[in-house]
Write a protein that binds this DNA or RNA. Structure first.
Lengths: 206, 206, 206, 206
DNA sequence: AATGAATGAGCGTTCATTCAT
DNA sequence: AATGAATGAACGCTCATTCAT
């Protein structure tokens, strides 16, 4: 028999609020999402939300920090298991789009809502997003050290390039909500073009 | 001596409102931009804005339609003068980032606000953005017909990939407002990686 | 050939504005009627209206004063031609409803819009409306002097009673806009009941 | 000691808002009454009003429906206790003017505002006002069945006639705010004239 | 005289946040 | 801890009125 303590119940309620907020933010957009609607969706009273979060902004920030944090940890773990930088790029692309497909609401919020306020991006999202970008940056630098990626490729540009490409495809999916969209193929294609683009000539068909 | 008629003065005021709105939207975001602030910035009364635009939404929509429309026309004209698809990609990338650097406020609005509301994107920005994306799509298809670009590259993915890459770099610039940003170099790098990525082996160093 | 002087043209424009205002007030109600709409209907510019009337209120007041004034003059003239007080009551009722039928817009304004502000009724309508009511009051007093109407009838109450009755029927017509409404019959019925009510027993079937 | 539950306190607040609105509407007219003024008068915040009513229109509509509804119930009950149709007319007239004197603000709103907007009258007040008018209509028809009222009297006209007469006297009172107004005498006079007007000859002095 | 573009005060309504229970 | 009724600041928009042309 499972014993659920006070702490666990609190944590569970907090999660429920975050999940509901993500859903509503995705559906309506941050500014059109109403606290009362999030509360209703989460099955709590309006006031209860303020026992867990300072204000509406903080809900969005929390969604960002916690989910991107978790995603980064997951990516790091997965990438460690892959020795080849090119394979890492392929896996990164695959994982990125897989997460978008598996968590469309979260993706929608990260894609669309987070961009809307400079403040969010500058003050909060900055670090986490940078950490995420650096996952790619590190792969590229490793590939350059291993002499498989072109040396004239600037990792700071290239990492944004791959991210931007994946992000753009994700946006397409988020907006169209086309469930038949073939992520595997898209991820493979993006990784292929990107790798062709940054690989040294002699490693092009690896 | 310049003779300014009634029509011209009206058009000039309309432009001033759009410019002010773009600036305020860029600075604060659409939802935090106040009509009264836009009016003050434009040097008109609040009510005057409603002589030119139906409501706040329509100001944003007009900014999209008119500026993206103008940009597309400019791009089309420029690209016609360039015969080589690879050069077209290079020029497209350069132009895109040049516009971002020359019109940071407009870029900011197109980058950030455009994404914010499904409604805007789907109903209004959709077509213009699609037209813009198709500029790239056409280049790619021409390159494929001319046998210089890989046939296994899906233009629908690739066009979004280049756009996403440029967009991401633009976001970086818009957010950092780093005036020393070398967009010529960034454009060249992005174009290089992208072209290496989609070019047939025999044309890699063209 | 008719020669239309400056004065005549001004007067004509003034009339046109009043006619348009009456129509719009009737259709939309005073508060929902827009000056620009009245101007459009009258075929003049918004500002022109202010050359003829101090403000929106004054248009309504003018409609009231001028039209009720004209109506009172017309009634006086007509009633003078009728010797019998009972016949005067019948003619008054007939004329009242005839005017409502002939000028539905004016009737609508007098019925509905003028009531909406105490200020109008107290400050402006007071005198004219009183003059109108006194037309009935005088008939009743004449009838009492001529010994055909009951002496215990209070003219101040009775005059309001007949007016209220006619007014109520007019409201019904104004609201329903039932063009098939039989005014002659209604007027006859109201006059009949009223006369039966105030006539001395010996004159009941006069 | 009175125990006041949550429901009761809410109902009390709702009543307070309606009472305040009635007072302000009576004093200023619907369009000149400000929500903030109603709120201040009721001792609540502006926003609180919207917890109880959808919008300003609905406050007016509610006043109509609830008060006219209550009045009609009160009249029905009272009239049932009176067997003679002529006495019913007398009591109806007395009650009508008594209510006007006891609730001058409500009377003012019903008198003046009710008339102001076709929309209100047609959509909302229509039914209630009709029910009220039919109280008189039923009395008249009963009197005709009982052979005490003239058969050539059209109940549809006659009911409006009595109502119009009472209404007009009420308007006089509402506008003058003459507290010394003898509504008993006025009611008696109106009922007398009306009854003389519709009674069969043989029942004139009943 | 006539115009109609411009003005800006004013108000209904929303909704994040608070706090008494 | 949880509630949800109450708050009130904030803002988009309207429209009577003005005034430069």
């Amino acid at each position: 028999m499972k014993f659920v303590g006070k702490e666990a119940r609190k944590a569970e309620k907090r999660e429920r609020i975050l999940r509901s907020a993500t859903k509503i933010f995705a559906r309506k957009g941050f500014y059109n999402a109403k606290i009362s609607e999030i509360a209703r969706e989460a099955g709590v009273a309006d006031g209860t939300i303020y026992l867990y979060f300072k204000n509406k902004d903080e809900i969005l920030i929390t969604i960002f920090e916690e989910s991107v944090g978790a995603i980064i940890r997951r990516f790091r773990k997965r990438l460690q298991e892959i020795p080849d930088p090119a394979d890492q790029v392929r896996e990164f692309s695959r994982l990125h789009l897989e997460i978008v497909k598996t968590n469309p609401d979260l993706a929608s919020v990260l894609q669309l809502e987070l961009r809307q306020s400079n403040r969010f991006i500058k003050e909060y999202a900055g670090t986490s997003l940078n950490d995420y970008l650096n996952l790619i940056g590190d792969i590229i630098q490793n590939g350059q050290k291993a002499n498989v990626f072109r040396e004239d490729v600037h990792p700071g540009i290239a990492k944004r390039m791959l991210f931007g490409a994946l992000d753009e495809i994700s946006t397409l999916y988020v907006l169209l909500k086309d469930r038949s969209f073939d992520f595997q193929r898209s991820a493979a294609q993006i990784a292929s073009i990107f790798l062709y683009g940054i690989a040294k000539d002699e490693y092009r068909n690896s």
